[in-house]
Amino acid sequence: MAKTYVTVQGDTWDKIAYETLGSEYLLPLLLDANKQYRHIIIFPGGITLNIPEVDTSIVTERPEWLGEDEDL
């Protein structure tokens, strides 16, 4: 079943990506699934966005190249 998200006044792409996909870095996937709204920067309320399926097993908290001891 396809997931959707209805915007709230003031939503932004990165906020929606973080809340629905778990990471603001997945914003490009959200944009690809909702190309008709790509011109919007700050959303009004009531727009229904498609939320793409994401394989969260490939998303990591830290980039592997950063190592264990270094801060982000």
Rank of each mutant, 00 (worst) to 15 (best):
G22R: 01
F43E: 11
I47C: 09
L31A: 10
I42Q: 11
Y18D: 08
L26R: 02
I58K: 12
D11G: 07
I41S: 15
D55A: 09
G45V: 00
L21T: 00
E70C: 00
K3W: 09
W13T: 15
T4Y: 09
D11V: 04
Q9D: 15
T60Q: 12
I16Q: 09
S57Q: 13
I47H: 06
Q36F: 00
P52N: 01
L66E: 08
M1R: 12
Y25C: 01
D69R: 12
S23T: 11
W13F: 09
Q9I: 05
P44Y: 04
G46C: 11
L66H: 06
T4F: 04
L30N: 02
N34Q: 10
A17Y: 03
W65K: 08
E70N: 11
P44N: 15
S23I: 04
E68A: 13
G67P: 10
A33G: 09
K35T: 15
T56H: 13
I51G: 05
D69N: 14
L49N: 03
T56C: 06
T7M: 07
L31W: 08
V59Y: 07
G22M: 05
D55Y: 07
G46L: 13
L30A: 04
P52T: 02
N50V: 14
V59L: 15
N50G: 00
E64I: 06
V6P: 00
I16N: 07
L66V: 12
V59M: 10
N34F: 03
A17K: 08
L29D: 10
G22T: 05
Y18A: 14
E19Y: 01
P52M: 03
I51N: 06
D11M: 03
E70R: 13
V6R: 12
L30T: 04
N50P: 00
L27R: 14
P52R: 00
K35H: 01
K3Y: 12
D69C: 01
W65D: 09
H39N: 14
Q9W: 05
K3E: 15
Y37D: 04
I40Y: 11
G22P: 06
T4M: 00
G10K: 03
D11H: 08
A17C: 06
L26F: 04
S23K: 11
D32A: 07
E19Q: 11
L26W: 04
Y25Q: 05
L49P: 07
E68L: 13
L21Y: 01
L31I: 14
Y18P: 00
G67H: 11
T7A: 10
G22N: 06
L30V: 02
T12C: 04
P63N: 13
A33F: 10
W65A: 15
F43T: 11
A17I: 05
V8S: 14
L27V: 13
G46H: 11
L66R: 10
L30G: 06
R38L: 11
